[in-house]
């Protein structure tokens, strides 16, 4: 038996928002693959939860009139990977979430839970950062839109008020159009392991495919939260593609990151991964975009 103090069971999003405003301390229970583990562990024993898992309105993926891709937060990782819209326009995200845990975790874990837990190793986080995702956050007072870039507040901390629920994740058309990306996860085991380091890169090339028009690079576990590396991106934008440029971008990434030593890996090893995974994902992204190096 899970040690919940109370379990609130909304039938609609409106009811869920009302419950969240009346019980701001209650945790949103989505797929439960973080919360249920911590309840068992004792860390969250005796908590109150709002069970949104059955709310199918919060599930699914569509393309909106303006071309934005809208991912509802309860969409499971396996449904993201299999989704034809994701396969066509955002395959890097489909691949990233296919690296999470094992099949059972990918069938229950939700993308909303993956970013709301605020964990730096979350496998979807770097790709969503690298594609400038915009979050839709709802409360009884209405909806606000927040760039995902401004969501992380520190390890395990995100910009969600007590009365708020994440209701959507959007990737604007301008962000994915003509853009090709790659996610690389370094972990000790190939399955059922958290990233030692994750790197997500995407590029848009100029029409002649000789130069980088725009490059975006984001990491997991390179600092306390998932992060972009603006110095490296600025250095790459508008430059002719050469092997030297790729090395320069990867070197520049090192100036923006703050990895730590943990039991999984030393800071020095993570610095090496930050450079190497950047180069590899950059080369792959450029090739996918039709460029040559």
């Amino acid at each position: 038996m899970y040690d919940f103090n109370n379990i609130y069971q909304p039938k609609t999003i409106e009811e869920a928002l009302k419950m969240k405003s009346e019980h701001p301390e209650a945790l949103i229970l989505a797929g439960g693959s973080d919360i249920l583990i911590q309840v068992r562990d004792g860390k969250l024993a005796g908590c109150d939860v709002i069970n949104i898992q059955p709310l199918n309105e919060l599930r699914g993926i569509c393309v909106e009139d303006n071309g934005s891709i809208l991912i509802r937060p309860l969409t499971s990782f396996s449904h993201i990977t299999k989704n034809p819209i994701i396969e066509k326009f955002l395959p890097a995200l489909g691949f990233a979430v296919d690296q999470i845990g094992g099949p059972q975790i990918r069938n229950i874990g939700t993308i909303g839970g993956n970013i709301c837990n605020g964990v730096t190793s979350a496998d979807s986080a770097s790709t969503l950062k690298a594609y400038d995702a915009v979050l839709e956050i709802a409360s009884v007072d209405g909806i606000r839109l927040l760039p995902y870039a401004d969501f992380s507040k520190g390890p395990g901390k995100v910009d969600l008020k007590g009365n708020e629920i994440l209701t959507g994740i959007r990737v604007p058309k301008e962000s994915y159009e003509n853009t090709y990306g790659e996610y690389m996860k370094y972990s000790v085991r190939r399955a059922m392991d958290i990233a030692t380091l994750g790197c997500s890169v995407n590029v848009r090339l100029t029409d002649d495919k000789k130069s980088i028009d725009r490059v975006r690079i984001a990491y997991g576990v390179a600092g306390p939260t998932p992060m972009r590396v603006p110095t490296a991106e600025k250095l790459g934008n508008g430059k002719v593609i050469t092997e030297q440029l790729i090395t320069d971008i990867a070197e520049a990434a090192l100036t923006d990151v703050k990895p730590r030593t943990s039991w999984r890996a030393s800071k020095e090893f993570r610095m090496q991964l930050i450079k190497e995974l950047c180069k590899r994902s950059l080369r792959t992204s450029i090739k996918k975009a039709g460029g040559t190096i």
């Binding site: 899970y2 069971q9 439960g32 583990i37 898992q53 975790i105």
Partner: peptide, 15 residues
């Protein structure tokens, strides 16, 4: 049609 770990799946979700 999909495989799940039933230890971290609430019985009420099976409704």
């Amino acid at each position: 049609g999909e495989n799940f770990d039933s230890c971290i799946y609430l019985a009420i979700w099976a409704d």
